[in-house]
Design a protein around this nucleic acid. Structure first.
Lengths: 192, 192, 192, 192
DNA sequence: CATGAATGAGTTTTCATTCAT
DNA sequence: TATGAATGAAAACTCATTCAT
């Protein structure tokens, strides 16, 4: 059961992600993560100070990945319409590439155990969305309202679609996703 | 500390709702519920067979209340537009009247511990939404797509708005709520 | 293995005293105490918040008993000589009546785990000794020096005698004890 | 962080002494010693077979040092009075030169983990004291009693004085120490 | 010899549940 | 029905020790 060594941390993170995504923080036991990672409990605690530290690391890492999805190649010079297409496409890609991570970071009640820097990162990411909305409003392309409201609409719709797919109420595919995207755009844009 | 007896069950349910809404199933201990309900542990177990039975009861009761909100007075004869107004208004009223209950039933990962009849009830409620969508589509008032997708859009938007209010990113009021409702309608309706 | 109920706490305290007296705080495991007390671990934790709370309770209780030994019937009006006889006799009686308790409270390094009120109680008891010394010095019966020094002499001698008996280097009996008492008196009194 | 090698062992012993003196055998973890010694855990185990072996080495070494203090230059031909002055002075010097070591070897409950040769060495050292007492008794200079009792008196007084200084109840200086020495002598000597 | 990641038995503690009163 | 002490399996976490490099 001894391990190759260097990838221990990654194996722990991978196993932990799966467990937390499925059962939530309190529904997961550290031994079960260790077992799934094929690592001893002691080893897990050599890599992460506590269960708490482990979820926080996980959350921060995957929110950071999401942030990178949004930021890298963001078409700041393109039209608002295209900016929205980009954001939606990235959201979709992230959920498609890393469904467990998306489930983990969006599906939970992230309670008392998340540290400040995690909440701050979450806010940074929402701020990316709000910046897009503000730009659209300045150009008159997006309806006038509190920017977060627009984010609520399209992000909420996307998350619910993702959940419905997990629950078997909807089918996961790009076509449907783009249909929802268009509906959202129609909903908050000012185009006739 | 002895209690009148008849309302014991209600006090337990109330305390349990608060706890589960805040911390999730696994994050709550039965003794803490009993303490908050001002009831002995033994008494709690006289009223509910197990922690499992308690959440299931709670979930079923509050989902039933939500179902009643939708069903009672549903304007089946009115226009699709008005039917949507009604659904949205009920959703809003429920979240407004019973914020903890809404948080509890919508905000969590309801995992393995929910029993079949709870999932069935959830599905029944979604079905109310889908029936409305189908009716709208038959009349040509709602865009043609899988009915659940439309539900995802407006329900997802609403849930996200509710969450954002809880997180302090948005402000809870009817005006904003109606703004989101209109955006959703514009999004999935066929009106020019 | 179910227990009569009301004396659980006492059984825990008794078992804990024995264990701590023999092995010290860190050398004792909570399960071993529970087992010896014929009590389940959970039950132990119903009665004491933590291992820490348990030692503190134990320490405080037994130091309080020692304090009572000194205080009750203290012959404040008698001669200094007789006051010393009284103190010594009480010290001896305590160690004789409760050898494990004496071993526990005097033989250890009571480190970080003792709470303030325990240290304060210890100081109160030393203060009883110092008050006796001051009275003796005012009467010219005890040599002039910092009062604690006199306490160090007789208390230290007694504790060492007690330890030596435990180690089999000396024999525990009143006669020897009184011999040491007389030596101490000769040592710090001013009598020719 | 690699070390010169030869002094590794010394650094380990030094760090271990400090830790054991403060927290006792069971209150100290091997990794914490290694860290403080600036040595890897593996290296520590190259030098000492086990935690057990480490304490035993430490105990034996420092008791040996104490023994040397007593033996080297012992004035066997001088008067009993001067022999006592020598013993006391050496005790004081040892505690003054190596306070941590003195705390370590005298302040603890040295339980099950000490090996036979450590207990034997302890007994040898007590025997030095008892030999002095016997010589004094043969000369009629020390009161007649079991020799260990006299040792209990002065050694106990000294240890208590040392502890009181550590606890802040007394002040460590030679003058006070000599005062206690004189009191002890008056206590157990036969001089008028 | 030096390193430090890995191990897993053992520690403290929690908690769903039972049951005698 | 109400009570809450008792239970013990399981959780989070520690730590002496090993071993491949």
């Amino acid at each position: 059961m001894a391990q190759s060594g260097s990838d221990t941390r990654q194996r722990i993170l991978k196993a932990a992600l799966t467990h937390f995504a499925v059962s939530g923080y309190h529904g997961v036991s550290v031994p079960s993560i260790a077992k799934d990672a094929n690592v001893s409990i002691g080893s897990l605690y050599n890599h992460f100070e506590s269960k708490d530290a482990l979820v926080n690391t996980l959350y921060f890492e995957w929110k950071t990945v999401l942030k990178r999805y949004y930021i890298e190649g963001y078409p700041a010079e393109a039209s608002i319409r295209e900016q929205f297409n980009f954001i939606w496409f990235k959201l979709h890609s992230y959920a498609d590439d890393h469904p467990e991570a998306f489930r983990f970071i969006e599906n939970h009640m992230h309670g008392h155990y998340l540290q400040k820097h995690c909440f701050e990162l979450e806010e940074e990411i929402f701020e990316i969305g709000r910046m897009f909305v503000r730009a659209g409003q300045e150009q008159g392309a997006i309806a006038s309202c509190s920017p977060q409201i627009v984010v609520s609409i399209f992000f909420g719709a996307f998350v619910q679609y993702f959940k419905d797919c997990n629950a078997g109420r909807a089918t996961w595919n790009l076509e449907t996703s783009l249909f929802i995207k268009e509906a959202c755009w129609k909903g908050f844009s000012t185009s006739p």
